[in-house]
Nucleic acid binder design. Structure first.
Length: 400
DNA sequence: TCTGGGGTCCTAGGACCC
DNA sequence: TCTGGGGTCCTAGGACCC
């Protein structure tokens, strides 16, 4: 989806069309500014001059989306708000409305699956579609169906998207970037040398800042240059799995299947404080935030129907370094007090001398609520029994 | 100059088991 | 007394993605 968060806001406030708008951080100052101007009513018309401006923004947020007008000023996603404010002080800043985002996310995805049922989720604003066997999917190399999907989404939501058509997910993802916004791009295997090889290695989904930097230090900047390298040479520098993978993707090869459904691995809540907090001096405040996070996490688990056996915490210190601790319990839980207790045990095992800017709580080793046998839930006798040993317990039971 | 929140996957070492 | 190979789970950190 093109500039998804911003485009959704533009549906609500069409008077902002063409203007530099950034969606960001969700700091209270912006929420309150906007709320006051709306008078609590989301759809009341607000004169452009009354919207909050980036230059008035205070807080530690980052930009999640910028409209194309804002991008002209060098503003883009993941950029700190304060930096963005210097580049484009006159940009209008709006908070993320998650409920609205989820609504439009569901709407565009259901539109896709009505046309092409084999769809993989890639977050709120992105999907992979296999339209190999969709009727008409091969016409004009896929362009006809891509146009149909674009039109379907626009008719349903008023939003535009960009589509890349290719023989695999790797190339499709890159192709989708070629013609933004509201574009279609088709990449075939024969286009590898002309369309893909001139690109920077960072355009490969999976090569991030670290790998990109390391490749640059080896004088490998383009994908074509990466493709020239001997696989063994890459393996020697990046490890067996990554080195071999790099060689494959540089040649446009990717046989990873569409993942049509999946269970969550973890569920978490975290928050960055308005100011850095000290474990001792701000104990009270920190404790409240900590308990609040545990309660929210418990509600998330319950709402989604999961229980967790492992609870973890995450701290980010003022120097931006991160510490994590995990604690696996003998039983599964989705209870706020239990989560709080386990997270508290984690907190005792982590250094707390430096000031903190972020605190998070995470639940993992998840199971569907109701899927856990009773003897694993609350029988003290088997509390230390690992699931894989449970079958032996059952067998032993027969002896008594 | 300052850097959100919610995720996934990978690696590597140690405990423990057979 | 000193020694194997294979497996799972747990933990901590890190890279990467939307």
């Amino acid at each position: 989806m093109d500039a998804f968060f911003a485009s959704v806001e533009l549906l609500r406030y069409p008077q902002l069309k063409g203007l530099p708008v950034v969606i960001g951080g969700g700091r209270r100052s912006v929420d309150e500014a906007l709320l006051a101007k709306e008078g609590g009513r989301a759809l009341r018309f607000i004169p452009v001059a009354d919207f909050p401006l980036l230059k008035d923004y205070v807080g530690r947020g980052v930009i999640t989306t910028a409209t194309y007008a804002a991008r002209q000023f060098g503003v883009g996603s993941a950029m700190g708000m304060m930096k963005a404010a210097r580049l484009c002080p006159q940009a209008i800043v709006l908070p993320v409305d998650f409920d609205e985002i989820r609504k439009y996310s569901r709407l565009f995805k259901s539109t896709v699956t009505e046309i092409a049922p084999l769809m993989q989720d890639r977050g709120v604003d992105e999907v992979y579609i296999d339209f190999t066997n969709v009727p008409g999917g091969q016409r004009e190399g896929g362009r006809v169906l891509a146009r149909l999907i674009q039109k379907g989404i626009f008719d349903k939501t008023g939003l535009t998207c960009s589509i890349g058509v290719a023989p695999n997910k790797l190339l499709a993802k890159m192709a989708s970037e070629f013609n933004k916004p509201n574009g279609i791009s088709i990449v075939q295997e024969s286009d590898l040398q002309t369309s893909i090889w001139p690109l920077n290695v960072r355009k490969i989904n999976g090569i991030g800042p670290k790998a990109g930097e390391k490749l640059a230090s080896l004088d490998i900047h383009t994908i074509g240059r990466l493709a020239e390298q001997d696989p063994q040479w890459l393996i020697a520098r990046f490890g067996k799995a990554t080195g071999a993978w790099m060689h494959e993707v540089a040649w446009g090869r990717d046989d990873s299947p569409l993942v049509l459904e999946s269970e969550p691995v973890s569920i978490s809540r975290e928050t960055t404080f308005d100011r850095d907090l000290h474990a001792v001096r701000d104990r009270q405040e920190l404790g409240q935030i900590f308990t609040g996070l545990c309660s929210k996490l418990a509600l998330d688990l319950q709402r989604k129907g999961y229980v967790a056996k492992t609870i973890g915490i995450k701290l980010r210190y003022d120097d931006f370094r991160i510490s994590t601790r995990d604690q696996t319990a003998p039983t599964y839980t989705a209870d706020a007090a239990t989560i709080r207790k386990l997270a508290g045990l984690c907190l005792k095992r982590v250094p707390l001398d430096k000031r903190l800017r972020l605190l998070g709580v995470r639940a993992s080793a998840l199971a569907k609520a109701g899927s856990i046998p009773v003897f694993e839930q609350n029988t003290s006798l088997v509390q230390s029994i690992r699931p894989q040993d449970a079958i032996n317990i059952i067998a032993t039971d027969q002896l008594f």
